[in-house]
Amino acid sequence: MAFILESFHSALILIVRLDAELLNIMLLSLKVSGSALISATIVGLPMAALLALTSMPLKGFFLNLMNTCMGLPPVVVGLFIYLMLSRSGPLGFMGLLYTSTAMITAQFVLALPIIVALCHSAIVSVDPVIRQAALTLGATRSQASLTVIAEARYGIISAIIAGFGRLMAEVGAILIVGGNIAGYTRVMTTTIALEADKGNFELALALGIILLGMALLINSLLLIFQRRAIVRK
C-alpha cells in the first residue's frame, strides 16, 4: 500500500510545482469536458423537456434509445466520430480531426443521452399539481412548462453532475479523435493513460489523484448550486 502514499506525495509535489504543462493539461480537460457538457445541456435539456411535457410520436422509442445510449462504450463513439471527421470521411473537409473541437464533439455525443434521459426523469417526476397551479395562476402553456422545469432543477443539476463525471473520466473517445497530441489535445485522462503505458505508474496515479481533486472541486461547486436550488423538509 506504500505506493498509494507515494502517489499522494507526488501528486502534492506536482500540485505545488504546478508547471505550465500540467496546468495546460488540466485547463484543456476542463475546457473540453466543460464545453461538451454545456453544449449537451443546451441541446439536451430542451429535448428532455419536449419529451417530458409534450406528446410526440415515437416518444417511447426515443427515450429507450437515450437510455440505451447512456451505456455506449466511449471507444465506439470515438471511432464513429473519427470516421466521420477523417479526411476520407463525410465531414473530412472541415479538418477537425485531432483538434479539441473533435474531442468536444465526441464528448458531446457521450453526454447528450445522459443529460436527456436524466433530465427527462427529473422533469416527469415533478408533481403534476405544479403545472396545474401555474395554469390556474394565469401562466401560458410555455410559462407553465418553464415553471415545471424550474421545479425539476435539483434533478437537472444531478444530471449535469452525472454527465460531468462521465466526461472527466472518459479516455477512450478523446484518445481516438484527439490523438493525445502534446500541447494540443493532451488532457488529464490521456496523459494518465500515456504515463501508465510508459510504466510511470506513480506519476499516472498522482495525475489520477489530481483529476479526482478537480472533479471533487467542480462537483462541490455544482452541489452548492444545487443546495441553493432545493429545500430540505
Binding site: 485547463l27 484543456l28 476542463l30 475546457k31 466543460g34 464545453s35 454545456i38 479539441s100 500541447g183 494540443y184
Partner: peptide, 11 residues
C-alpha cells in the same frame, strides 16, 4: 462559463 471557455481556448 462560456466566456471562460472562450478565454481558455486560445491555441
Amino acid at each position: 462559463v462560456c466566456l471562460l471557455i472562450l478565454l481558455l481556448s486560445g491555441n
